[in-house]
Design a protein around this nucleic acid. Sequence first.
DNA 1: GTCTATAGAATGATAGAC
DNA 2: GTCTATCATTCTATAGAC
Lengths: 186, 186
Amino acid sequence: MPAHAQTSTAAVVAAGRRLLEERGMDTLTMRDVADAVGVRTPSLYKRVRSRSDLFRLILEDVTDELTAAIDGAAESGDPIADLRAVASVYRAFAHANPVAYTLMYLPQAVPGATTRYERSSVTLLRLVAELAGPQHMMPAAQTLVAWANGFIAIELAGAFRLGGDIEQAWDFGLDRVLKAVQRGKD
Amino acid sequence: MPAHAQTSTAAVVAAGRRLLEERGMDTLTMRDVADAVGVRTPSLYKRVRSRSDLFRLILEDVTDELTAAIDGAAESGDPIADLRAVASVYRAFAHANPVAYTLMYLPQAVPGATTRYERSSVTLLRLVAELAGPQHMMPAAQTLVAWANGFIAIELAGAFRLGGDIEQAWDFGLDRVLKAVQRGKD
DNA sequence: GTCTATAGAATGATAGAC
DNA sequence: GTCTATCATTCTATAGAC
């Protein structure tokens, strides 16, 4: 980095990521990001090609972090315990990064975003194969991901307006869904 | 309606709803709607108070339609068969109205939108109570809704990049989740 | 009710000086 | 690399004539 640098791509991405959570995607302006890193708007274009390029970089950052967190959560050797831990980490990540999490599942919103979805699913598929048997690996994984993703999406939207205890609903659902996809239940 | 009316609130809402699916929420402009109904932009403000008022009306329209479809799907008397039918109708509705469906679960995106969620859940809760027993009604309903919503959200985003047969995954998941929340499985 | 005209306010991005 | 200046565009919404 040359001598007169007052900011960096990493700082721009970090500020963008923080502001994305504070203000939402369509109200995040380049000017906001510039203010946050202490430069004027035009200087950002030395770091990122465009606004959507910034979003692409933010999503890459978020996805890498989530992948690492998931991989680090699966260490016990027992697939049920590991899947519980992965689900918990996944949910915690969504709570900490709600806007970015939502964006991860709307790839069309960020042109050119190459989701690194596949990498983070390696661990998941391995655990599910152990639990459900290899012949049911794919639909079992999709069922588990659908449930977790749906639960979190509704929760983040504040849309569990049916009432009831939300933690109890999570524990109940996780327990039942894990049992449901287990080997030998068909 | 007076004599010189060239459009109506219903026509504006219908055009808005159609364009919402074609163009997405943030690229739907009042001018697009005006063009679609054959008037100039300012005339729309005789029909709707503001742009967000238009979205509110669109969401009401969509929600009413979904509620009616769900209620009409539960007629067999058998909770399992009825829940299968409801899930199927729900999914078909999401496929036919993907943008509006997504918006229904993002109430903060539409200020003043009074979701009629509660009405459409009456039927669901009744069926789930029959299936899971009254003491597990709430978490069982939330589990079912979370799975269906999550499956559909991922499907609409084109994010089932794990591969596999998507219809098979739906059938597998629905079967397993229904069994999972059934009475006497704890 | 519908129109023309326009206010009023953002925004993304670029040119060119320093 | 960063800046000032500015372009060019887009949009919601209102005023007032007809």
